[in-house]
Amino acid sequence: MTTTAWRADPYTDALSRGRGRLFLRRDDGWMLPLDVERWCGAPDRADLTVLRRCLGPVLDIGCGPGRLVAALTAQGRTALGIDVSPAAVDRTRRSGGTALCRSVFDPLPGEGTWRTALLIDGNIGIGGDPVALLRRVAELTGGPARIVAETTADDTTDERCEVRVEDADGARGAPFPWARVGARALRRHAAAAGWRQARQWTAGGRVFVELRRR
């Protein structure tokens, strides 16, 4: 379901160009802009705060075009990106990163050994069920593992919805489940999945939370 949606032409076309006006759109008309140019660029100052929190081998879940994976690789770090979009995986590889076209719920290399998992650019929403996602990340990580997740700016947001990727001309992809989660809700979902909040910070108008295994 998610794989089909993120392979839709509006998203693929935008990644191929490295730009384009894309949105996540609900059926009631609500739309969330997707920052394709930032995703396809180099890590910005907010991203650098995330990279500094990475410990050991890093798994970037929903890596998109791979700016974080490529940056970690350039530092000599072990990093793997996974994404259900072939265009995203291809762009990650061309930027120097290592990536696989997989869902986080598929079998993955090194299960139980990743020390840091990234859920950036709203990827805590993958699958529309944050608790299920965080439990899956617990299976993928080992030792004193950590998750660095990006939340909504509104601390109280806790929403499940069905969305589509849509471009400025109205071309739409297939519907898929998504979640939007603020820091307060993330703390609650994390506790249900065996994680605890270790740190929260804001950079560049974006909100990040570091979770540690309980």
Rank of each mutant, 00 (worst) to 15 (best):
L108W: 04
L100N: 00
G194A: 03
F208W: 05
G66W: 04
G194F: 00
R7T: 12
Y11V: 10
R17F: 11
R94P: 06
G205T: 12
Q75S: 15
A46R: 07
G127V: 11
I61K: 01
V50M: 03
A149G: 09
G142F: 06
T98D: 13
G194I: 02
S95R: 15
T157P: 03
W195H: 02
P107S: 14
G110M: 10
L24M: 11
V58A: 07
T92D: 08
D60S: 09
E166G: 01
R91V: 00
P130W: 00
R188T: 12
L211Y: 08
R160F: 08
D106G: 15
A42N: 04
G64L: 10
T116P: 01
L186M: 10
A190S: 01
A190L: 01
I61G: 06
L140S: 05
T157V: 13
D13E: 15
A14T: 07
V207T: 11
R102H: 12
D47L: 07
L140K: 01
S95W: 09
R21A: 13
G173P: 03
D106T: 05
R160K: 11
L24T: 03
L134F: 08
A74I: 02
F105L: 13
P65C: 14
G194L: 00
P86L: 15
M31Y: 04
T73W: 11
R160C: 03
R91A: 13
L100E: 10
R206P: 07
L68G: 03
I124Q: 00
T3D: 10
D155T: 12
R199E: 14
C101T: 07
H189K: 03
F23L: 10
D167W: 08
F105T: 05
G204I: 09
T152D: 05
A99P: 00
L140E: 02
R53A: 14
A179C: 11
G66S: 06
A8I: 09
D155K: 04
P65A: 13
R77D: 11
R188W: 02
C161I: 10
G18E: 12
E159G: 01
I124S: 00
W201D: 05
A46W: 03
D106W: 13
W178R: 12
R19I: 08
A193P: 00
I61C: 12
P86R: 14
R164S: 02
L32F: 14
G64V: 06
E139H: 08
L211G: 01
R146C: 10
G64C: 09
V104Q: 03
P177K: 11
R199M: 09
V58S: 05
R38Y: 05
D35Y: 07
R146V: 15
R45V: 09
R115Q: 14
G112V: 09
V69C: 06
F105Q: 07
R146Q: 15
A183G: 05
R102Y: 08
L51T: 09
L55G: 00
R52K: 07
V131S: 01
G204S: 10
G64A: 14
L100V: 06
L68Q: 12
R213F: 00
R180D: 04
T12W: 03
G128P: 03
D154I: 09
A174T: 13
L51A: 06
W201E: 07
D90V: 00
I82Q: 01
A42G: 12
Q197E: 15
T2F: 10
L68P: 06
G20Y: 09
Q200G: 11
A185C: 11
Q197G: 06
L119I: 06
F23S: 09
A149F: 01
D158E: 11
D106N: 14
R91L: 13
R52L: 13
G205M: 04
W6P: 01
